[in-house]
Design a binder for these strands. Structure first.
Lengths: 235, 235
DNA sequence: TTCTTTTGTTAACGTTAGGTTAAACCTAAT
DNA sequence: ATTAGGTTTAACCTAACGTTAACAAAAGAA
C-alpha cells in the first residue's frame, strides 16, 4: 500500500551526471531531490527530512565537506555518502572526520552505489522508534490503540481495526467533540478527494458507528456538507 | 573508569601483511586476534566476542565470504570489513549481500582503514546499546536463550532453534506485546525486503507458532500489513 | 411540496496479505 | 558421493481490506 519511499538528497553540480544519477535512483524507488550546488543543497536540507545525503565533494561556492559539516550541525544522524573524482587520501580522511558513512570514487558502478545505500539504510533501520506520537485514545468506555490497531470496550476483548478504520477513528478522536472535516480525512487517509473516495469514507463511518454502538454515550454525528463529529456525552 | 579496548578479529592469510596490520592496529589501542585462515578465524570467532571483524577475501580453505556467512549465522550484528586485492564489482556486491559494513582494496592506506574502523564503531555505539546484551527471555512458560539458540518449556528438554528461528523469536521477544514491524525483521535478519524474503519470514512465523503451541497464553498475532505481535497473557 | 444532493447502510466483488505444508535447493560435514 | 540441517520457493487456501454498486433515508434548495 502506501509504503513511504526513502528520501535522498543528492547534491551534484554536474547537471548531466546529476540528472542521470537522480533518474537511476528514482527508478529504484527512492524519492530524490537534486540540488545543483552546496548552497542549494543546504537550503533543501533545512526544508525537509531526508533518509540519506549523497554529496559531491568538488563543487563551486560550497564544497561537499563544508556542506556536510553544516548538515551535521543540524542533524547528527543522517547518513552521508561522498562522491569524489579523485581518490585522494586526504579527502577520504577528511570525509570520515566529518562523519561520512561511505565513500565512492567517480566513476563508480551504479549497482555498487545501490548496495551501499541499501546497506546503510539497513543499519539505520533500528531507529524506527522516533515517533512516540499519540497512539492511545480514550473514547467513552472505549480504548483505541491506533498503533496496534485495536479498540477495546470496557477493557474486554479487543476488536481489530483495519488500517482505514483505524486512521479514520483516530482522526475523529483527535478532533473529539469538534468538527472533523470530510476533506481532511479524504486528503490525509485516502489521499484523494472525489466522489468515490467520499463514498468509501461513508462506508467506513458506518462501520465505525457499528463498533461504537455498545456505548450509547458515544456517537458520530454528521454535519451536512461539512464532515463528522465524534461526540462523547459524559454526564 | 576502565575503558575496555575494542576487540578486533583479523583474518588474513598473508603472514607478513597480517602481522604488520595487527601491530599497527594494536598500536592504535585495539585488541587484535589474528587468525591465519578462514577455519581458524571461525574457531576464534566462536570462542570470544568481537567488536569488529576484518576479513581477507582471498584465502585458502575458506574464503572471506563463506566465513562471513558463518559469522552472520552466529551473530547478525558484528560489523565486518572485507579486504580484497582486486576491485571486482561482483565481489563488492557479494560482500554487501553478506552484510558487509565496508570494503577496502589492497593496497590501502592504513590511516584510511583506521578512519573506517572508527566510523563503524561509532555507528554501532549508538544503535547497539539497547539490544546487544539481551540474550535471555522469558516467554510465558518458555525460556529462550538466543545465545545458545534453544527454547525450553517449563524447564524441560530444550528445543534447538535454527539461526533464523532464533533471531526472529528474539526480535519478537524484544518487542513483547508490541508491534514488531515486518520491515524490521526483514532488514535485520534477511537483509533484504522483497516478496520472497517476506514469504520466507511467514514460513518462520508458522514454525515459531508451532513451537509456542504448548503454552496457550503465548501467541503471535498478525497486524495486517504492519507486522507481528508476540502477546503473553498473564492472568 | 418536489427535486436534488448528501448521507446511511448492506452486500458483492476483486485484490492482496498471510497461514501452512511440502518440495526444492543449497552447502557444510561425513 | 551422500547426508543432514537450514533456508527458500512453490502451491494452495483462507482471511482481511478496500472499493463500488445499489437502494434507502435525510437534508437542503427551489
Amino acid at each position: 500500500m502506501e509504503e513511504q519511499n526513502k528520501k535522498i538528497l543528492l547534491v551534484e553540480d554536474d547537471p548531466n551526471f546529476g540528472t542521470v544519477l537522480k533518474d537511476y535512483l528514482m527508478m529504484n524507488d527512492y524519492d530524490v531531490v537534486h540540488a545543483k550546488n552546496g548552497m542549494e543543497g543546504f537550503e533543501k536540507f533545512k526544508k525537509d527530512d531526508y533518509d540519506l545525503c549523497i554529496l559531491d565533494v568538488m563543487m563551486p561556492y560550497k564544497d561537499g565537506f563544508t556542506l556536510a559539516k553544516e548538515i551535521r550541525e543540524k542533524n547528527t544522524d543522517v547518513p552521508i555518502i561522498f562522491l569524489t573524482a579523485k581518490a585522494m587520501k586526504e579527502d577520504v580522511l577528511k570525509g570520515y572526520k566529518v562523519g561520512a558513512d561511505d565513500y565512492l570514487n567517480k566513476p563508480f558502478d551504479s549497482e555498487v552505489l545501490l548496495m551501499k545505500i541499501k546497506a546503510i539504510m539497513q543499519r539505520k533501520a533500528t531507529d524506527t522508534v522516533a515517533d512516540s506520537k499519540q497512539f492511545e485514545f480514550k473514547i467513552g468506555r472505549f480504548d483505541l490503540n491506533s498503533k496496534l490497531r485495536f479498540l477495546k470496550f470496557d477493557g474486554g476483548e479487543p476488536t481489530k481495526l483495519s488500517p482505514k478504520e483505524n486512521e479514520l477513528l483516530r482522526l475523529l478522536a483527535l478532533h473529539e467533540n469538534d468538527l472533523m472535516p470530510r476533506e481532511l480525512a479524504l486528503t490525509k487517509i485516502w489521499r484523494d478527494d472525489n466522489y468515490f473516495t467520499s463514498r468509501s469514507m461513508d462506508v467506513y463511518i458506518a462501520k465505525l458507528r457499528k463498533y461504537l454502538k455498545p456505548d450509547p454515550n458515544v456517537e458520530i454525528l454528521n454535519i451536512h456538507g461539512e464532515g463528522f463529529r465524534l461526540v462523547i456525552n459524559n454526564k
